[in-house]
């Protein structure tokens, strides 16, 4: 199972900070999501992503996690030389993060 099977994502940017919100497809999937995606797993899954820090905000009412990744955008959209200076493609790249299926 991969993240795409249990969640959807939206990616935004603020200056040199990327923001990836991850939403459980069902309330039942939310605890699995909380366990499965951590700052460490994001960093390991995207080794070429520069990261100063990752903060995770939990929103149980929305069954969502909001990851704020500082330093990820090569200086931010106005100065970056990157092909995708906003980092809009980043969230989709998390969708093949492997998810361990819960024991029945």
């Amino acid at each position: 199972m991969i993240l795409r099977d249990i969640a959807h994502v939206r990616t935004g940017d603020k200056g040199n900070t990327a923001q990836i919100a991850v939403f459980a497809r069902s309330p039942e999937a939310y605890p699995l999501l909380v366990r499965a995606i951590t700052a460490g797993r994001i960093a390991a899954h995207l080794p070429a992503l520069p990261i100063d820090s990752i903060t995770c905000y939990e929103l149980p009412g929305l069954c969502a996690l909001n990851f704020v990744i500082e330093g990820a955008l090569a200086g931010g959209v106005t100065r970056s030389l990157a092909l995708d200076p906003h980092g809009k493609t980043l969230g989709a790249q998390l969708l093949d993060l492997p998810i361990e299926e819960p024991a029945q």
């Binding site: 939206r10 923001q19 919100a21 939403f23 905000y57 929103l59 929305l62 969502a64 704020v68």
Partner: peptide
């Protein structure tokens, strides 16, 4: 509900 949730957190850092 899904499009609204995604947009609610779009470009939000601390949602509080």
């Amino acid at each position: 509900e899904a499009t609204c949730k995604e947009q609610l957190l779009y470009e939000i850092l601390d949602p509080a």
